[in-house]
Design a protein around this nucleic acid. Sequence first.
DNA 1: ACCACAACCTGGCCGC
DNA 2: TGCGGCCAGGTTGTGG
Length: 284
Amino acid sequence: MPELPEVENTIRDLKPLLVGRRVQEVQILWPRLVHGKAPEAFAVELTGRQIVNTDRRGKYLLFPLDNGRTWVVHLRMTGQLHVVSAQEELERHVHALLTLDNGQQVRYRDARKFGRFYLVNGADEVTAQLGPEPLSETFTPLELFFRLQGRRNAVKTLLLDQRVVAGLGNIYADEALFKAGIDPRRPANTLTQADCNRLHTAIRQTLAAAIREGGSSLGGSSLTNYRRPIGVQGRFQQRHQVYQRAGQPCPVCGAAIERVKLGQRSTHFCPNCQRYEPPVVQSG
DNA sequence: ACCACAACCTGGCCGC
DNA sequence: TGCGGCCAGGTTGTGG
């Protein structure tokens, strides 16, 4: 569910609610939520700590603490963080509670239980393998080109690989490839530098627009659908050009959007706007 | 190193 | 109404 734009909106919403607050009590209701240590140890270490900042790296939410350690959260498919009064009745699928020093409570809700909490000395213990931040200066068209070199996988599959570039998921990979006019099935090593220039621009524009629109909220159920910590849904799903639009007309040319499987993931594209003509190879 | 695929979980929807 | 099958925004582990 949450990709970079959703995580970015989540962290922006949480900042004024969490920075400067002290954690009074920690309850882990689903032990496997905590990665790499016993949930009791996690709770003991986080209790009494002050949250001094909020940040994001790829799809990870980062909460630096006053003892130099960092609480890290990954929402995976259906994780949600919200902040309510500790008096509020518990919702379904809440797996962790952090009671703050102002009577508010941070609640982690996750219908599929894929999300994870970490407590580490530095965020890079968790994020070291991630590729560049797509909206930062370090992400350049040439950088993208180099990272796709020698890879025969479909370019879509590699855009989902967080080591290539951090933060893209199934929605924004499909949308960026459409915007760039690149067939998602194309072997990554067939992309030219000009292709990578267009793809680089498309990735940035797609993510920036999605952040502005509050991310994407799909489907009807609040259990699995993205909600911001302040309770509202995103609006970017209204701007999707290809994602989950199989059979509907392409907004540019009117051709029917197609859906295929790539690397176990549904992939949506316009067969007309996203063409690839392999170069003719001369033979004997 | 690269690639394919099962696994982790639950809920919703569609067809019979 | 029930049941099987398939779908889902992400990542990790295993094996070739």
